[in-house]
Design a protein around this nucleic acid. Sequence first.
DNA 1: CTCGCTAGTCTGCGTTACTATGTACTGGTA
DNA 2: TACCAGTACATAGTAACGCAGACTAGCGAG
Lengths: 109, 109
Amino acid sequence: MGRQMTEMLKGTLEGIVLAILSRRPAYGYEITAWLRDQGFSDIAEGTVYALLVRIEQRGFVDVVKVPSEKGPPRKVYSLNATGQQYLEGFWSNWSFLAERLEELRKGGK
Amino acid sequence: MGRQMTEMLKGTLEGIVLAILSRRPAYGYEITAWLRDQGFSDIAEGTVYALLVRIEQRGFVDVVKVPSEKGPPRKVYSLNATGQQYLEGFWSNWSFLAERLEELRKGGK
DNA sequence: CTCGCTAGTCTGCGTTACTATGTACTGGTA
DNA sequence: TACCAGTACATAGTAACGCAGACTAGCGAG
């Protein structure tokens, strides 16, 4: 991926994944597939798994192991209250940033 | 600053500064002041200078030293053609990201 | 048996922003 | 004259994050 996009994802990818989980529980492979679908064509798989480990350690998600017909059991993540709260903080930060940038884009030129 | 915002700025701060420079030439101290004004209340001065050094090395800006009545001479940066092109790439990446996040925010919940 | 899909782990690396500190030049003032 | 606030730029060390790439597994189909 472009260096630019890579850097832009720092901090936002976490919010994106939390937002996905706020809609419905999901497991790593599923999230990766969804991201690719949405056009984040080359987010590394390893990146998503590492991120899931981090948010689990921070206590933002609950985890349930669900047996799968295909391959090893899935770790299904769902957002808990702590995670929900953190996600709201993310949205407010995001809004702040997005507003400033929108202004800059319009005013610039 | 919050860890969250810090990470979010990675990749975007560069675009923000380039966007500022696309409106008019400016020097480091001025840019820092403007950012604080806009609500980026605690972006470290050192961060801006380091960023300016980076974009200069990549050839996105032209630099002119201008004597100042107060303090040492100012290094005035202005966006050149290469930088303008890079900035356009930044905007397209940003749009992509912003659209995906907007969708997530609406769809989620 | 081997291939391919699903699921997850681990290591080393490069980039970035932060903190903290330091240098240097100016004008005002006590 | 000595000091200080404001201006302007710079650098060393640190932490976080995403990436690349390799590796371990389980299971079904050809």
